[in-house]
Structures are given as structure tokens and as C-alpha cells.
Design a protein around this nucleic acid. Structure first.
Lengths: 114, 114
DNA sequence: CTTTCACTTAATTATTTGCTTAAGTATACC
DNA sequence: GGTATACTTAAGCAAATAATTAAGTGAAAG
């Protein structure tokens, strides 16, 4: 249930807009490092560092052919992150559901657990 | 479509195990700062700092009554994050689908788009 | 063989994190 | 009033991030 997937790294990788932009580009197909860098108002080494974060998180893989490194998204790598979020969302939606108009009420919360 | 929700902050908030633990605790109901801190092998000010990150991300809200601050998860705050992930996952699963046994093949990738 | 191209590596730098301890504030209790 | 409780604020600090420029490597093109 808790695989050797570093959830920390995945969420950290997703927390940067440049890295999310790179992922979005890669959902439209494989790309070279230069192609990933092009829209990014950033030096190439900067992009390479972001790419390293993405690879260490398992979200992206790359292979070098000749002098071009081609990057791809890794299938299924987002699943643990999505699952974590989904589980929590469901849990607390259910809870908020049970509480009914708790939020609308006067919330005297002296009697909850512990 | 792109609300004033700082996706950066949400993913960043989720990238720390202590903060995720606090969120998991809060899915079981509201808690005071001390209750959040208890299982956390960390000083109270440390916990307060993590709490600040969670509040700034919009994932948690808190109100102070007397000398006790009670924390709650914010309904729906995770939705944009989940949605972002979901959209990408779907997009690239569809893509991998179209590619068929691309991954199993010899992958001569000189003819892709652009 | 030389130059160009596509990275790659290294070294720097400023900022942000994630923690700590110490001291302060504001209730609640006796 | 005095004291304990539940944070709160402040200050400091080591490590990690996010970026840069400059120099290096190795395949491709002329």
C-alpha cells in the first residue's frame, strides 16, 4: 500500500510552475531538453536542474540518443500522489457531510473526541 | 478555469511528511495545535510554522477560542490540485494508449511531431 | 579536421526551508 | 493576585533550492 515511492519528491516536483509547465509539454509528447527549455525564460542549466528534480521524483524519464536527450513522462508515476489526495478528500468530504450544517452553526466544540 | 488558487502553495504544502501527517489527523476531525503537535517529534513552534504553511495554502483554517486554537481542514481546497493531476494523468494515459506498444518496440523516435 | 550544436558540469550566489531555543502574551484556574 | 497552560513571537542557523555564468564534452555537419 505504501510503495517505495517518495511522495515528498513527487509533490515537491509538482510545486514549481516551471516543472509543471515541463510536464504539461510532455503530455503532448516526448521532447528534447531544448524544446522543454524554449518557452521557459530561464537558462538551459536551470532547465536541466528542474529536469533532474522531475526524474528523481519518477515523473519523467529520459534517454540520450546522439547529442539529443529525449524526455518522456513516466506512466503511472502520478498515481500515488493522486491517490493520496483522493483518499483525504473523500475522507473529509464524508466527515463534513456527517457534520451537516456544523459549519453554519455556532460550533461549540467542547465535546469532540479525546 | 485558473482560479486565484496558488497551486504552487498547495503542492508545496503537501510535499512535507509532517504537514501530510497533520492533514491526515485533521481528516479525523478538528484538533488543537497541541493535538497536532503531539505525535510529531518536533517542537511546538515548528508545528506552528507548518500550520502556517498549511493555512497559507488554503488547505487548513483555524480559529482561536480562549487560549486554544482549533484547526480544521478546508473543504474543497484540494480540488484544484487533484484536478491538475487528474487532467495530466488522463492526457498522458490517452497518449500512451494511442502509442500502443511504442514502449515495447524499438522506439525510433525521429518522426514525432514538431 | 574544424566548427557548430546540444547539452553537461562546475562553481557561485541569494533565498527559502525546517528546525531550534528563549522569551513574550493571553487566557484559565486556584 | 499568582501560577499554569496554550500558544505566539523572535532570533538564529544549517541545509536545501533555484537560479546564474563560465567552461567542458561529445556527436554532427561542413
Amino acid at each position: 500500500m505504501n510503495p517505495a515511492v517518495p511522495l515528498d519528491r513527487v509533490f515537491h516536483a509538482l510545486a514549481d510552475p516551471a516543472r509543471r509547465a515541463m510536464l504539461e509539454r510532455l503530455t503532448r509528447g516526448p521532447a528534447s531538453v531544448s524544446e522543454l527549455a524554449e518557452p521557459l525564460a530561464m537558462s538551459l542549466p536551470g532547465v536541466v536542474q528542474h529536469l533532474a528534480v522531475l526524474e528523481q521524483s519518477g515523473l519523467v524519464t529520459s534517454r540520450k540518443a546522439g547529442r539529443v536527450r529525449t524526455c518522456q513522462i513516466a506512466a503511472g508515476a502520478l498515481q500515488p500522489a493522486e491517490q493520496w489526495i483522493n483518499e483525504r478528500r473523500i475522507a473529509w468530504e464524508r466527515r463534513l457531510d456527517r457534520l451537516g450544517d456544523y459549519l453554519a452553526g455556532e460550533t461549540q466544540m467542547e465535546g469532540n473526541e479525546r
